[in-house]
Design a protein around this nucleic acid. Structure first.
Lengths: 211, 211
DNA sequence: TAGATTGTTAATCGATTAACAATC
DNA sequence: TAGATTGTTAATCGATTAACAATC
């Protein structure tokens, strides 16, 4: 399976397929690459090629068994068991994302990524909880991350401390980071960083108001 | 200039270059594609190719004049004059994004995308303001958008009303939408939609915790 | 069996990189 | 002038699409 590196473009579409499968799972037993593609906004040939990287999940003349494919995709994305996540920087954005994520987690039983720890330098927050999630000082990252088995993190700290925050998380054992700070993080080791810089996205979109 | 469609991959890198230029503009007069590329995380040849789509901005043996290139990139991205933006759905996420964006706008004079109107169905919010930005009922989109010259919008409404919200915005004349709802919007006309679905991003990242 | 749909191969398309003549 | 660096062309690389034999 992991003998060949699978491109990021492929991985990016798997959660899209997962969303479609969840939507149709009560209505039908199987789904064709045609239908799955239509609903996900992807060409059927590409759907088949994407899935074929991981195994032979379909049946000729029939399509893919919805629940089986759902299970397989969950396994591939490590969503078949709980994932622990931390969030560093409980400012206005961090606070909102924490609450938003927590509500999502509570409402949707198949959403397995759980926020278990928050970090902030504000002494008024340290020691308190938000939606019953404990808030620690960032100095405790090295201790808390292994302790709570945290594997992913969201960074919502100010730009000037984003880099050191990323490094601290990586050294503590975090494997994937979603970074909202408007800086390009340079993280050592094989830690995957995804950027979710709102202002960059808006500036990019501005291009299209003139077409 | 617009005689040939410029690929989205190119447009996506322009704000990155803009950020680098802003960072160095007090320290140096000109910058080479090598240095610009290093700081933006892009190969120098690609930097030159990207910029060459829009004109001949550099000087052989010297590089690019920082302020001149900044001006040109701002013009290309329509960031040389104020852009009015609306946000629909003042729930916890929308509320936080509005405040976050507003602070960014106030602090950073070169950030020209201004949030001028909020929309929400909650009668306790309609008629009030947030950071002095007025909150309207979504029924008023058709009237307010042309009135206030709104060109971009952020959607943070619940999934089940995201599609109709998008259509209403498009019909009112909005040209670009940043959608945080976990649905694939089908918007008529040449409206550009970018998705910023947090849960999709996290599910994608989860793949990398096992590598 | 006949019809449908997969998994896979080959063809196409598009984006990135390397190389270099032009020239500041 | 000599050195540096652009803009552009050709080569490479990777991702998507079309086509179809295999088979449920």
């Amino acid at each position: 399976m992991a003998w060949k590196r699978i491109s990021d473009a492929v991985i990016r579409r798997l959660p899209l397929y997962l969303r479609v499968l969840e939507e149709v799972k009560d209505k039908q037993i199987s789904i064709s690459s045609q239908e799955l593609g239509d609903m996900a906004g992807v060409r059927p040939a590409l759907v088949r090629k994407d899935l074929a990287w991981f195994g032979e999940f379909g049946k000729q003349g029939v399509g893919y068994d919805v629940e089986f494919l759902q299970d397989e995709l969950r396994k591939i994305l490590h969503l078949d068991e709980p994932i622990h996540m931390a969030l560093v920087g409980v400012g206005s954005l961090g606070h909102a994302l924490a609450r938003y994520h927590h509500r999502r987690f509570m409402e949707d039983p198949i959403f397995t990524i759980k926020l278990v720890a928050l970090f902030d330098v504000n002494p008024n927050l340290v020691g308190a909880t938000l939606d019953s999630i404990p808030i620690f000082h960032p100095d405790e990252i090295a201790a808390v991350v292994p302790d709570m088995d945290v594997q992913m993190a969201i960074i919502t700290v100010p730009s000037d401390v984003a880099q050191e925050t990323g490094v601290a998380l990586a050294q503590a054992g975090v494997k994937a980071i979603l970074n909202f700070a408007p800086v390009n993080l340079e993280i050592p080791g094989n830690v995957h960083v995804a950027n979710a810089d709102l202002s960059l996205e808006l500036q990019r979109l501005a291009y299209y108001i003139g077409t």
